[in-house]
Amino acid sequence: MVEAVYILGALISLACAVLLLRSYLRTRTGLTLWSSLCFIGLAVNNIELLIDLYIIGPEVSLALLRSATALASFALLAFGLLWERA
């Protein structure tokens, strides 16, 4: 049941990434590219969570990788939001 949360999170993130990427290809607006990359990263982060909790054993932890992925994703979006003249 709990894994449904991460799967849903990954799917919604991917959907956002696709919509934003589509917009970027049409408008070449930087913000849409950066935010698309952010949501791709969030999708990856959700998948890493699934792998960490359900696929690999407790001897190996992806905690640091997961945090790094999330940080990189949000950093990309934050950069895009700040870089655009607004």
Partner: peptide
């Protein structure tokens, strides 16, 4: 440290 940085970025966003 990473969690703190993530939280700060999310709040800023």
């Amino acid at each position: 440290f990473l969690w703190g940085a993530i939280a700060a970025l999310c709040l800023g966003i």
